[in-house]
Design a protein around this nucleic acid. Structure first.
Lengths: 146, 146
DNA sequence: GAATAAAAAGACATGTTTGTCCTTTATGAA
DNA sequence: TTCATAAAGGACAAACATGTCTTTTTATTC
């Protein structure tokens, strides 16, 4: 349920680039950081990681910036979480017991397992594209409100 | 979904004392820490906090230790989370947007809200006592397996 | 080739969580 | 009263997440 700030920054960054696409292909980190109120350099690291994982492309120099790949928007939320946070959240015990499983469950195992499964399903089935809506201005507002 | 280690330590600590109750009223921090493989001093801090919040009692000196209060086991999981972690997890936006709400929702708001509500409900409705079972040995094992 | 623009990369700073150590305080027993 | 025992409390350390700054690399334009 609680993901890292990196995850939020990554998702919002991708969405911002997607919305800007059409007006301009390349979007600079300075613009994204400013519009979304994200620390510029920290966002830079996050975006670098997305480029390394082929979620985004980047070009240096004048007129450079970050841009979407053909399949950028098809990425599932779970794939994004995997890059920014890893999957421990979904795979590990709430009480952080290493040996907790359905055979030898912790006291909360049964109660929690249901949520983990459902959330995992949702995040596997939902792509970044699924989150995009028609109203550009409203959408920018919704990802920009700190 | 992911709570602090303090939460896990607190819950397992209370459960351990509950299980030991009957055999002896007071349980020492050293015993709990050893049996549950929890860092002794860190557990000490967590237990202190529980005493401050009237979840447990403690007595110093020989034959001292931690013991349950009359209502210790009636405490809800949400009350425990509140003490160890605070309620931000349940109250804040997944993307950490301050102004996210049902009127002005972030792109994940609708998808996530359902889980937050259900988990909050579960944690409000479940008491520590609800987690206790018959089989003492199996239960100790289940809270002790790191 | 020189100047400029933008991402990449690495070093450093801050904050929070988690963990350790040492001293103080309270309690019970001899 | 003295001693031993156990929690309380404070100071410190390590690890990790987050944030900032500076330099390097790459690309574009002139």
């Amino acid at each position: 349920m609680v993901f890292s700030k990196s995850f939020g920054y990554a998702l919002r960054g991708i969405l911002y680039i997607a919305i800007m696409n059409g007006e301009k292909q390349k979007v600079q980190i300075d613009e994204i950081a400013e519009k979304l109120s994200i620390p510029r350099h920290f966002l830079g690291k996050v975006m670098q990681e997305l480029v390394k994982n082929n979620i985004l492309s980047s070009t240096k120099g004048p007129y450079g910036g970050f841009s979407l790949n053909e399949n950028s928007l098809k990425i599932s939320l779970i794939a994004l979480v995997k890059i920014t946070d890893g999957l421990e959240l979904f795979e590990s015990c709430v009480l952080r017991l290493k040996k907790c499983n359905s055979i030898n469950p912790c006291p909360l195992h049964k109660q929690i397992e249901h949520y983990k499964t459902e959330l995992l399903q949702l995040f596997s089935d939902t792509s970044v594209n699924d989150l995009l809506k028609k109203d550009k201005l409203g959408f920018i507002k919704s990802i920009a409100t700190i």
